[in-house]
Design a protein around this nucleic acid. Structure first.
Lengths: 333, 333
DNA sequence: ATTATATTTGCACACGTGTGCATAAATAAT
DNA sequence: ATTATTTATGCACACGTGTGCAAATATAAT
């Protein structure tokens, strides 16, 4: 490992002060063009690389944005992180990844590490097992702005970006009823999470508004896997009064339902309609192609990023941006 | 934003030297238990948080591992990053994400940023447009260890972790031929990339070993999208001598082929066999369920991480770990 | 030619932590 | 009781960069 050259080395070599070198390399207007040229070309020839740790220490904050998500390998989050990473790079930030695996303790660990690293800001989506949000309050008190995304807390003053979950679910049920379905079940998550709570409200109210009696919410109390959707519909299918349609709160759940139908020769949508709130492109590849209420993840990511940048520059604002989802009708209803 | 407490603040308050505080908080054996207790409890009561930037500066390297991938939203990479993130957290590292979008310039930018941040190590998968790897050589010369993964360069001495691509493709063709397919096409990527080159060699040699005459490789010179698979098979289907099976180098390509078959009422596998080298769990959800040669991404990630840790601790080694893929036979062949 | 103004560079210190070495205090050995 | 040894703490400096202010130099105005 060869010795790393510093601005002091450059200063000594060129017989000038390191502050001048520092300013020249950042293209400070106070340095004359001639010395800038001299310094820049010398720095380049010697392979000088800025030491960002030193800059971060001096600036009392780092050039990082931390992203906390439950699971990076889930498409929605992967998609989200992908957009954030592009935006960050374009704005000279680095993205640090944290994954909670739906575990409250891991989430707290992540927050601790984030504080130690004095990151410029955080974008977070809560874990399913998080009921206490004090660690995030500490983070904000510590001076690190946090923007929440998708799974947002209701008891923290901070910018939040969500899909309009109420309307998403309401719209799905509305479509199903208009298509003639009468017994609609809802595969959802723990209702203490605002996302699922609002969707369930939308589901319930749509039923009420159409004077539909059958209602059936199946709460899946953990990370949604394909098998969870499979198991849920299998159970429903044994009931006396079977549903004739299901609203699924994730693509994986609907994929599990689809799989069950194929196994049992249940014709979709004739015997069972399937709709999901999701944004996974593979929904189009299922047989029959899956109708979805699409969450505009790209747009949400962009808004979340902009809000965060805004918070790093000025005061923390307490807004909730609720983005409208888009119905993509395919063959499963 | 409240004032952040430092070890010097603690030292002053307790009437001791900050070096003692520093050592106590790191549980240095030279500090007596009584003063440790006093310091730790005081630090906790005041909400002291270590400043990692200062530590990084002092240590001349950061606590970060950088991961460079073409696209985080692609399942293979999302899965990989997910595993790496877990391992990193368990070993007190942070993962910084970089996404090249298959763009050589972005890759160079990422490397530059990584150098500036003095990261502890890098795990990278090359972009499709990267033909010159000098930036990675610079990185290694700079003292930052790099482990390559999946898309590896052949001209750099560094640890590399790949699927055994030759055997993966060979095994696929072998299966197809044993199942009675005779005209097998290969949808692959640019052959200057070692991954595709080796797969194509495996494909060609398997055909040769079975004395099969028909060979047809379709090179898709960019990031694989579903539409690319669709377009490729559409073109092949217009040829005088149509293939009766395709080996696809990604799940997305095979999904595109599947979609074309559904559109055109081509029966899979009777009229066309489909097999893919992939690890996407949604391959099981296609109709018919997709046969794949599965890349062991989790295992590869673990090996890559271990190799990197090893490199940060001792000398850089020049090994290539070639991991065996696993054939998962479903309905599409 | 003198003063006023603008431009350019230098100086000193700060950011928070870690480490080698010296010193001081406590304990053990003679 | 004195010396040797262990244990505990302090001191000074280093890590590389950025910034407010002062000083020096150059340019413009009178």
């Amino acid at each position: 490992m060869k010795k790393k050259i510093t601005i002091k080395d450059i200063a000594n070599e060129l017989g000038i002060h390191h502050a001048t070198v520092s300013r020249a390399l950042r293209n400070d207007s106070r340095i004359s063009q001639s010395t800038k040229d001299k310094i820049v070309s010398y720095a380049k020839s010697k392979g000088y690389k800025l030491n960002q740790s030193a800059v971060n220490l001096r600036n009392t904050h780092s050039n990082e944005i931390a992203v906390i998500v439950p699971n990076i390998s889930h498409y929605t989050f992967a998609n989200f992180v992908s957009v954030i990473t592009d935006l960050a790079a374009r704005n000279n930030f680095i993205v640090s990844m944290f994954q909670t695996r739906e575990n409250y303790e891991y989430e707290k660990d992540a927050v601790k590490t984030i504080m130690q690293n004095r990151v410029a800001g955080v974008i977070a989506s809560l874990s399913l097992t998080t009921t206490d949000t004090d660690h995030f309050k500490d983070l904000i008190d510590f001076g690190i702005p946090v923007v929440f995304f998708d799974r947002v807390p209701l008891d923290i003053k901070a910018p939040k970006v969500t899909t309009d979950n109420y309307k998403a679910a309401y719209g799905c049920v509305n479509l199903l009823i208009n298509k003639g379905f009468k017994k609609i079940a809802h595969l959802t998550g723990p209702l203490h999470i605002s996302v699922f709570n609002e969707r369930n409200k939308g589901y319930q109210n749509a039923l009420k508004d159409h004077v539909v009696e059958y209602a059936n919410n199946v709460v899946i109390p953990k990370e949604f896997e394909i098998s969870d959707g499979f198991d849920a519909i299998q159970k429903l299918w044994k009931e006396d009064e079977k549903p004739d349609a299901v609203l699924c709160d994730s693509f994986t759940l609907s994929a599990g339902v689809n799989m069950f139908c194929r196994n049992q020769n249940i014709i979709v949508p004739d015997n069972l309609g399937i709709i999901a709130i999701a944004n996974d492109p593979f929904s189009a590849l299922l047989e029959p192609a899956q109708t979805i209420m699409s969450q505009p993840i790209n747009e949400m990511a962009k808004i979340a990023f902009d809000l965060l940048i805004q918070c790093t520059k000025s005061e923390i604002i307490d807004v909730t941006k609720s983005i409208q989802p888009e119905l993509i009708i395919r063959k499963s209803v």
